[in-house]
């Protein structure tokens, strides 16, 4: 009898664990499938011409060079507008803020900024940067919009990086009569830099893949040339992919998967770079 009970419990456990393994497999296998599928189907489109030429015949021929360039401009613009601000906000929260209602309010705001849907950021950018500030449908307006969206991330990652700097360094610096800002500038920031950069790269990677905001703020499907000023319209990979897939009849599948592959490579290589830096920093901090 006793033996029977135990084996039933054992059976329950085995069944349960198999289900957990099954869940894990259902979570992970499709991811690998997606990646492999895109690589396999998109690789055929890749060529020197595809990567370096402008599109022609409504994107059915030619390449995606302007979209690649536009995406890099967007990543750059996003980080230019969101990183300094994010770092300073992170510094404020760790070095200056007291534990009071204002700080709680700021933290709540950051949390909610991270949760605002991207399309809502798009409308915000349209209303504020495109229309009210009259930047028009431009690289500048889109960068600012994406920067607002990236803000939550740059603030949080900078804050974590600054918090991780040991207190001893702050005390050592302050104790020889440096000002608070000197301590931050010359001791804390250099130490926090790898963490800050990791966050920045992640934010850039995210910006590269965003579609909804730039759809609203005005990316173009086809443009004759590259943008020459921040006030120019621009092409971007995700928007180009969207239009090619959803709005151009008769678009070849190979081209579509090719664009997806390029976008994926840009986004995932930035992600891996961030992970790489994070691991390196951890090794350096705990290794020696």
């Amino acid at each position: 009898m006793a033996a029977l009970t135990i084996s039933r419990r054992e059976l329950t456990q085995r069944t349960a664990f198999s289900l957990l393994v099954l869940a894990t497999a259902i979570v992970t296998v499709p991811v690998l499938f997606i990646i492999i599928y895109i690589v396999v189907n998109g690789a055929g489109a890749l060529s020197w011409e595809f990567l370096t030429q402008a599109p022609s015949q409504a994107g059915k021929a030619g390449g995606i060079f302007p979209a690649i360039v536009g995406t890099f401009y967007l990543m750059l613009g996003t980080i230019i507008f969101s990183l300094p601000v994010g770092v300073l906000a992170g510094i404020y929260l760790t070095e200056y803020a007291r534990a009071n209602w204002l700080t709680r309010l700021i933290n709540m705001a950051i949390l909610n900024l991270a949760g605002v849907p991207s399309i809502v950021y798009g409308l915000f950018g349209l209303g504020l940067f495109v229309l009210a500030m009259k930047f028009g449908m431009s690289l500048l307006a889109a960068s600012l919009t994406l920067a607002c969206q990236a803000l939550a991330m740059t603030i949080t990652t900078s804050r974590e990086a600054v918090i991780a700097v040991p207190r001893e360094y702050r005390e050592g610096s302050l104790a020889i009569g440096t000002t608070k800002w000197q301590t931050i500038r010359h001791v804390i920031l250099p130490q926090a830099l790898p963490g800050v950069i990791t966050g920045a790269i992640l934010a850039m990677s995210r910006a590269a893949g965003e579609t909804a905001p730039i759809l609203v703020v005005g990316a173009a499907f086809i443009l004759p040339g590259l943008p020459t000023s921040p006030f120019d319209q621009f092409m971007a990979l995700p928007y180009h992919l969207y239009t090619a897939a959803a709005h151009v009849p008769g678009m070849s599948k190979v081209t579509i998967w090719g664009i997806a592959l390029v976008l994926l490579v840009v986004v995932l290589s930035f992600n891996s770079l961030a992970v790489f830096i994070r691991i390196r920093v951890r090794q350096r901090r705990f290794g020696s």
Partner: peptide, 15 residues
Amino acid sequence: IVELLAGIPSIVMGL
């Protein structure tokens, strides 16, 4: 792999 999934842009998932 889970992190990878988080990194795939929504437009690609749409595709």
